[in-house]
């Protein structure tokens, strides 16, 4: 593959095992994944639930060890969490005793490289960017799910990572808020143009956001195919109803359908064999 763009993240034959409690053998979650993510690219990984996509993302973040292969960011192997990456979690995971400002500052505080005042300024900047100006002193319990995810996003962007990791950040939101947040994410992303890896099981969401979509197989997760999404940016929410969008949706759904089927029938078998 000769691509002129710089490779930001590269995975070569990455496999990840882990131990489940009460199990006698390691569980293979991710199997021999090859993946290149280019600088400034929005990569979306889509796959059936439980296929190991989150595990791979955790490994990229450095929270999970890989058992085989090579996983490199900017040419350096990933061993532990670092300042060049930041994760937006599926559950906002905000500290409820900290205000919005305190939560957005949190990552920077842990890094400990900036003065307190500078951290606050930076946090305020990001709060404005994600559209929460005026909510600095609110506590997470006072915010809606969508607003909490904005804080979650701002907290990750505040540390100015090289690569932004998003783990199904909108999965827990209601359908309308989710659509709106997708548009918001694109707006914020185009303001920063960070390399992003986004995980979802929602095919429409994947196409709408992505430069490329990587389709994962059912467990153990393997990359089935990578599809370039050649839709112009900026994208509108109504682009989701355009014929080309629907063609992509059809194609990815066909690719993923048998994987979903595999997952389901395996679940049925395991119930039946009991």
């Amino acid at each position: 593959m000769s691509d002129p763009r710089a490779v930001k993240l590269s995975a070569r034959q990455v496999s990840i095992h882990y131990w489940l409690t009460r199990s006698s053998q390691p569980f293979l979650a991710v199997d021999s994944v090859d993946l290149d993510v280019y600088a400034g690219e929005f990569m979306v990984i889509v796959g059936p639930s439980g296929c190991g996509k989150t595990t791979l993302l955790n490994a990229i973040d450095g929270l999970q060890r890989i058992s085989d292969g090579e996983l490199e960011l900017n040419g350096k192997p990933i061993r532990k969490p670092g300042g060049d990456r930041a994760m937006v979690f599926q559950q906002a995971s905000l500290l409820p005793w900290r205000s919005v400002l305190g939560n957005v500052s949190y990552g920077l505080e842990l890094r400990g490289k900036m003065q307190r005042a500078a951290i606050r300024d930076r946090a305020r900047e990001l709060i404005t960017l994600v559209g929460l100006k005026g909510f600095e002193d609110h506590y997470p319990t006072e915010l809606s799910g969508g607003m909490q995810q904005r804080v979650n996003l701002a907290r990750a962007l505040a540390v100015d990572p090289d690569i932004l990791l998003l783990d199904e950040p909108f999965a827990a939101l209601d359908a309308q808020t989710r659509e709106y947040m997708q548009a918001e994410l694109l707006r914020i992303w185009s303001a920063t143009r960070k390399t992003a890896i986004f995980i979802t099981h929602d095919i429409k969401e994947a196409i709408y956001l992505a430069d490329r979509v990587a389709v994962f197989t059912a467990r153990p997760g393997r990359i089935k195919e990578i599809i370039e999404i050649d839709l112009p940016r900026p994208r509108e929410l109504r682009s989701k109803r355009e014929p080309r969008f629907l063609e992509y949706e059809d194609r990815i759904w066909n690719s993923i359908e048998e994987e979903v089927r595999a997952t389901e029938s395996r679940a049925l078998e395991s119930v039946g064999s009991r």
Binding site: L63, K80, P81, G82, F89, Q91, S93, E109, L110, R155
Partner: peptide
């Protein structure tokens, strides 16, 4: 989730203890 977030942002054991 709090612990995972703190770890993801590179928090040390001591920082996790104090902030979470």
């Amino acid at each position: 989730g709090w612990i995972k977030a703190a770890r993801s942002f590179g928090g040390s054991d001591l920082q996790l203890f104090r902030t979470v």
